[in-house]
């Protein structure tokens, strides 16, 4: 039985569960394999089209046997859009934004869940609700605000929040903060109080309880959030186009938009470009996946 083969590695507990309910196991496999295939088909199809010359698909349609598979769309997309330059911009925006957001959010979440101050609920609602606002609702006042706030020239050569990478990082942090506070505070709430009691008895300071105790315990959540944040901030187009005026300072999403074109668009080329653009998020995911999949759990890290 395949199920048994899998069970052998599953440890004592899982073995018991599995042996008792092989039907459940089989259903699980059917579900997961079916879903995986369904989820992959659209992506693989786009990948397939991106590997075909435009002239061919525009003649035969997308669903047709290939006469020729080629990376030329990828090469052209890379060169035509000056993608490397825009990748660097994206790194400059995404990396600081993700780190700052997670750091600030974990501070707030820790205070909200582990320090008993009066305005806890109000703060939580402030952050969570701020996260409900669509970007478009705040953009006009924000834009005016950005034109008013001066920045020192070492941070922004525009001398303003507007049209500067620093300004872009700031709004990404502000905008994602609410969500991260909300998620992290809920994760921190799952930590048993007993663990804190023990550390208080040991005389651990507030900061130690945050840095040494809480952060390691919420690492799965931090990893999951880091993945999501990277994806969102890296793929953000809205802030980038409304708050950055100089085209060459924008992130890689705008390089994609440049390829999309005014009228004539070569869908195969854009698909190829979009595939390239997706690679960094995949890498980040692969790197962080281990953090939340390999079961970093309360039991194993305590102490």
């Amino acid at each position: 039985m395949t199920a048994d083969g899998a069970l052998a590695r599953g440890g004592v507990v899982r073995q018991q569960a599995g042996r008792r309910f092989p039907i459940g196991r089989i259903l699980s496999y059917v579900l997961m394999i079916g879903a995986t295939v369904l989820w992959l088909v659209p992506i693989l199809f786009a990948l397939y089209v991106s590997l075909r010359p435009y002239a061919e698909t525009s003649k035969l349609g997308y669903v047709s046997l290939p006469h020729k598979l080629t990376f030329s769309n990828y090469v052209n997309a890379w060169q035509e859009s000056d993608m490397f330059h825009f990748f660097l911009n994206s790194v400059l925006i995404t990396l600081p934004a993700v780190i700052i957001t997670l750091f600030l959010a974990s501070l707030v979440a820790f205070v909200l869940t582990r320090v008993n101050i009066k305005i806890n609920v109000a703060l939580l609602i402030l952050f969570t609700a701020g996260n409900l606002l669509p970007q478009q609702v705040i953009i006009t006042p924000l834009y005016r605000l950005y034109l008013l706030i001066p920045l020192p020239h070492f941070l922004a050569d525009s001398g303003l929040m507007y049209n500067s990478i620093a300004g872009l990082v700031a709004i990404n942090v502000a905008f994602q903060l609410g969500f991260c506070v909300f998620v992290l505070s809920n994760f921190m709430r799952t930590i048993p109080d007993e663990m804190y009691e023990a550390s208080i008895v040991d005389g651990a300071s507030l900061w130690t309880r945050y840095w040494k105790l809480t952060l390691p315990l919420v690492r799965p959540a931090l990893a999951a959030l880091a993945t999501l944040l990277t994806t969102w901030i890296y793929n953000d187009f809205f802030w980038a186009i409304t708050l950055i005026e100089t085209g060459s300072r924008r992130p890689v999403t705008s390089a994609l938009a440049n390829l999309q074109g005014q009228f004539v668009s070569n869908q195969n080329l854009i698909a190829a470009a979009a595939m390239i653009v997706a690679i960094p998020t995949l890498v980040v995911y692969m790197l962080l996946q281990r953090q939340f999949i390999s079961g970093l759990t309360l039991g194993s890290t305590k102490g």
Binding site: Y143, I241, A257
Partner: peptide, 21 residues
């Protein structure tokens, strides 16, 4: 030349002209 894709440029024109065009 400061190139912005066609649609974005158009959607953004109000703030573009009032910012640092």
């Amino acid at each position: 030349i400061n190139t912005t894709d066609h649609n974005t440029f158009q959607n953004n024109i109000t703030s573009y002209l009032q910012g640092t065009p």
